[in-house]
Design a protein around this nucleic acid. Sequence first.
DNA 1: GCACAATCTTTACAGTGTCAAGTTAATAGT
DNA 2: ACTATTAACTTGACACTGTAAAGATTGTGC
Lengths: 197, 197
Amino acid sequence: MSVTSYHHGDLRTAMIEKGIEMINEQGINTLSLRQLAAACGVSHAAPYSHFANKDDLLSAIQKHITDKFVSVLSEALTGLNDTPEGLLNMGCAYVMFFVRNPQYFHFTFNRMNLLIDFDENPSEYEPFELYKDTMLHLLEKINIANELWRKIIITHLSFVHGLASIAIMTSNVNIEEWEENVYDILSKSYFLGGMQC
Amino acid sequence: MSVTSYHHGDLRTAMIEKGIEMINEQGINTLSLRQLAAACGVSHAAPYSHFANKDDLLSAIQKHITDKFVSVLSEALTGLNDTPEGLLNMGCAYVMFFVRNPQYFHFTFNRMNLLIDFDENPSEYEPFELYKDTMLHLLEKINIANELWRKIIITHLSFVHGLASIAIMTSNVNIEEWEENVYDILSKSYFLGGMQC
DNA sequence: GCACAATCTTTACAGTGTCAAGTTAATAGT
DNA sequence: ACTATTAACTTGACACTGTAAAGATTGTGC
């Protein structure tokens, strides 16, 4: 495969990787197919040999990012299955993943609509499904009343996801500072007044 | 002012109101200036007499929605100033505002970047500033140690904002169901394991 | 070595945001 | 009351976007 060959070699993965790169640099809103194709050294219609349309490419990018995210969450869980520490560790990983990659957050949650299902059905978004399953196992193990499960899961997921949102919306986001504090914030659950355990 | 006059009359507010309408119907991503102008019965360049560019129009829409949001939050607070109940009530209003208008959520939080400041500076987003102030007054009143304020505020805002996020991402979002449960979820703060008070 | 399929290019089209120039209507000044 | 000025709108144009169709180039299986 020569460097200047007519065929790119592996345009599909090149588009995905360069796409992720550009999303990190300039965000999702200004990402154009033609620019991305040019950045891959290819004509503007070349991507259509590998993707049905722009949204299809974005879905592929989404999958890539989501897979990475899931592996980060799973890693945070290894050795701590079915323990509160594991859940907490996963929560920290959840927040830090987006603190380190804020553009992934916007990209992911602006494109999707119905992601979660708190009933028996699986959630469309795998990280949510992983979080839900992890909590279900834990809740079963420590004998929490069945009718509370739904609200407990909603509460946990809201807190963790919300903390990620708030973190990346904070001015002068400081990764190290969040690294130091996430665990403390999630574990202590500083509440007061009307909202507390 | 005749109905078929060359001049629209009040194109500026017409664009804003019709814009909000279209955002609610089709979301922000597919909203086009030209379509919106056409929906207002006006040529595609007419908006440029009232707005510098598309983003300027979106900012005006943003302001409209944010003002409404702030008034809803303030209303939830009336008569309950500096009380935990007031804070809780405002939290419920926060969540329900976006459950009733999910598109407002996407529109607002996809466009903005640095919104919150947990130090002395005011937040760029007025609802956050209102929430922060409300909590600060309360924290001062009930004599919570000063060095805990920051984390307490982050925690509360994360939980409330996260619950709104999760609510609108839930499949088959049921407004009535959320109306019934928001208060309970926010007030009881169902936590377990590593994350609890 | 040749047909075929996959990959890429070129060309074209409708839609977008934006600008410049021209048109219409309201308003202010005399 | 008439005119000059200005604000609001239209028209036309441009560069850019996503997408489709048709053609060119290359790798692959027989």
